[in-house]
Amino acid sequence: MRVLQLIDSLQVGGAERTAVNYANLLSVEIEKSFLCATRLEGALKLALSEDVEYLFLNKKRTLDFKALKKLNDFIKNHKINVIHAHSTSYFFATLLKLINRKIIVIWHDHNGNRLFSNKSHNSVLKSCSYFFNKIITVNEDLKLWSEQNTLTKEIYCLPNFSVLKGEEKQVTNLKGNIGNRIVCLANLRHPKNHIFLLEAFFKATEFMENWSLHLIGKNFNDAYSNELNKFIDSHNLQDKVFVYGQKQDVNYILNQSDIGVLTSSSEGLPLTLLEYGLAKLPIVATNVGDCNKVITNKREGQLINSQNVDAFSKALLLYINDSELRKQHGESVYKNVKINFSADNAITQLISIYKS
């Protein structure tokens, strides 16, 4: 079996990390593993295993026939028989299927926000789905959505998993006081709802000292990030909230942190929570998507309604004021992630889907 992971870019994000993880892990399980970034490269290129053969297309437009020919030639030359297309790369995979009907195309949906989108927004996806052999989703809600809104018959749910590398370069030294750091791993964009987090953190500052909040994720320097900067300035949080941008040394960052948070308004199954779990961090997160599969009870973390700033602030204070509780809940969520979201289980299931 020779499988190519197809992804738009290698910028740091959940779908991108999943594509890289699959490519790396499959490289020791199947005949040959490949990864193709169609539009942009990025920091995750450095995370690719030497055993994964890599192709960058530098696609310039939606209908880039030069890039399409380049990929089709690559597939033929390397006798690739499965294309695993992640997120929006499904359109390019469909074009490929039209000129190479022998390949198997599998689309992987990571977008929890799709549940709230209208039919017209997904009209192209529905048309393309006629050419998908199978669909994989990251949670059961997305699986149900695909069953009701696509033309693909074989649809599977495969939960995410995460891999934290201990041998990464230790570059990012977090500011603030040791033992008093809250971390949020999420690119600065709307579904991650950072303004909610800032509001909750600000409410908590009235009852705490020396704690700081650390935002790790790509900064697009747009209206969204400007809104966050204005909030930080207007509430005098410059010495308590720190924005770092995109970082690679995630394991090192989490080892310097004491509480993990995520305030998304929509999710699939966020890799961020799995990474917090592997780092044994107690978690406060909004109850969206499949976050409740990672935090299954109040011994593994705190799940809060995505509209309730006061409740989120109180949940932060619960951990801030009880170091022993932080330790206990961190251990509990670690056990859940290790048992139910292991890389070995995910790869075994994935290969089974490829072969089915």
Rank of each mutant, 00 (worst) to 15 (best):
H108P: 00
V82Y: 02
E331P: 00
N173C: 02
H190A: 09
K134W: 07
A47F: 12
Y224V: 06
K102L: 03
E331A: 04
E154I: 03
D64K: 13
H214T: 09
V241M: 09
H108E: 05
K143Q: 12
S123W: 14
R39K: 15
L158R: 11
P282I: 07
S117Q: 07
E209N: 11
D344L: 03
L144E: 08
A93L: 08
G260K: 05
L273F: 03
C128N: 08
I295R: 06
I104N: 13
K59W: 11
K143M: 06
F92T: 07
E50L: 00
D51V: 00
A223T: 12
F202D: 03
L71A: 06
N308L: 04
Q248T: 07
E16T: 03
K79R: 06
T348S: 10
E199S: 09
A204P: 00
R299N: 13
L55F: 03
L303C: 03
N251E: 14
Q349S: 13
R114Q: 11
N100W: 02
L98G: 08
H121R: 14
L269D: 03
K240D: 05
V12F: 06
K175Y: 07
K60N: 15
S120D: 10
I106M: 12
V124K: 13
L262G: 01
V52Y: 11
N340V: 01
N58Q: 13
D8G: 14
K192I: 09
V52L: 06
G330F: 08
Q11V: 15
E154A: 15
K247S: 11
T263V: 12
S127K: 13
R61S: 15
N251T: 10
Y224R: 11
K247G: 07
A85S: 15
H78V: 00
W211E: 04
V309A: 12
I182F: 02
L125W: 11
S332I: 00
L317E: 12
D233V: 13
S323D: 14
N219T: 04
L269I: 06
E29N: 04
S127T: 11
L6H: 14
L10I: 10
R189T: 05
T296E: 12
S352F: 01
E167T: 05
H214M: 12
I83L: 09
V3C: 09
R114N: 09
F312P: 02
T152I: 04
S89G: 12
V28A: 08
K247N: 12
F312K: 05
G179F: 09
L158Y: 06
N321C: 03
E267V: 04
K143H: 07
